[in-house]
Design a binder for these strands. Structure first.
Lengths: 214, 214
DNA sequence: AGGTGTGAACACTTTCACAGCA
DNA sequence: TGCTGTGAAAGTGTTCACACCT
């Protein structure tokens, strides 16, 4: 119990991900150090913001010099919990689910889809890569068998609340939801939403504003 | 020119989308009025927040009564620019692109994919629904021919900056980007990002924190 | 009574500016 | 000199509390 109740804002957290992404590209290029200024340029923020974000977790830089790329990347991976791989279940193997299954970026970042569940009985038994699709009735069993850390919900809106409840009861504490609806989130579970319609409406808002006002 | 330079925060904007989603479900159920309290319950926020958000655009409610559902929905659609359909181009017809093409929620909200472009010459000429895939070389032409309002970029990271530049030069001013990389955004263009890895890392951060601290 | 609309209080985030170290 | 780390200042977003209307 090392009092690690990190109270970090969501915006800081998101930026940490972006810093890490850029740092890893620098690592590949063999760059050894980077300034807060350069980090800021490549993550659409300011140098002060970068330094402030990092200062919540310690002092990683050398004054007058910058940050050691590999060291900082390592520290960020530690902060973001990326020092171990995660076992992910995909619930819903429709179009969105299938696209997510094939999404290489997940695997590259250590998020491994080790289980797929679908309500359509015709899909049960089918192979996706080296995973066999399991029927909905086996959801809890699969989550336990495979020691799943994170569930991705790519099921239709009417089904998603029940799926979330079942997933939570099976002990999964982290969920990424793609169904565009408001969920009752069970105690102790963290849900993050990907809502593409909201993003599109953010764009239509801007387009409408341009037309009307200049 | 009616001075419509709405200065609304991103968080307010996102909540407006959620309010509208809930209002439309109430409309379907034939509910006539709704209180800020109920709206808040169904959008994970507070009644005060709802009222404050709406107050930026006018007074839509009746004191002691609540908001007229249909009227408020209509107003929100107006604010979000959803009073007309939008013509959308999908650039990249890989797995993510195909899933987006089939995503019914877009169509339902008035975002119609009227053009698909892909760099793979073998895909050019293929039909997707009632759209024919066009080769990358015709990108600008297609965007103009089809009077595209919004481009969805679902291309690989190494290609996305060039695609964005071309799309912008062809006059598209709103872009939804799925490629996980930082973009140089051309003047006058609005880009929104969907970054699923960042969301996953938000989850791994929480899981790691639980394990370490309690 | 009941629920909106809103200024004022509060909390949180970002930016500034500069001391301090390599 | 150059760039980090950080308090203090500024700016934004959220919550409170209550006047006001129905």
């Amino acid at each position: 119990m090392t009092a690690t109740a990190r109270k970090v804002s969501d915006s800081t957290l998101r930026r940490l991900s972006l810093y890490l992404r850029y740092l890893e590209s620098l690592e590949e290029e063999g760059v050894a150090t980077v300034s807060s200024d350069l980090l800021a340029c490549h993550t659409r923020t300011t140098a002060a913001q970068v330094r402030k974000d990092l200062s919540h977790f310690g002092s990683f830089g050398k004054r007058g010099f910058g940050y050691p790329v590999s060291e900082l990347a390592r520290r960020l991976r530690g902060i973001l919990g990326l020092t171990r791989p995660y076992r992910v279940a995909l619930v819903g193997a429709g179009r969105v689910g299938s696209a997510l299954f094939a999404y290489e970026e997940f695997r590259r970042r250590g998020f491994h889809i080790v289980a797929v569940v679908d309500a359509d009985p015709r899909k049960a038994g089918r192979r996706m890569g080296d995973v066999v699709v399991r029927p909905a009735g086996e959801l809890e069993a699969v989550l336990r068998e495979e020691a799943v850390d994170i569930a991705i919900l790519a099921v239709p809106v009417p089904a998603v609340q029940e799926v979330l409840d079942r997933v939570a009861r099976a002990g999964v504490r982290a969920v990424l939801n793609f169904a565009p609806t408001e969920l009752q989130v069970p105690e102790g579970v963290t849900v993050r939403e990907v809502n593409m319609v909201v993003e599109m409406e953010g764009l239509s808002f801007v387009l409408a504003g341009e037309g009307a006002g200049g």
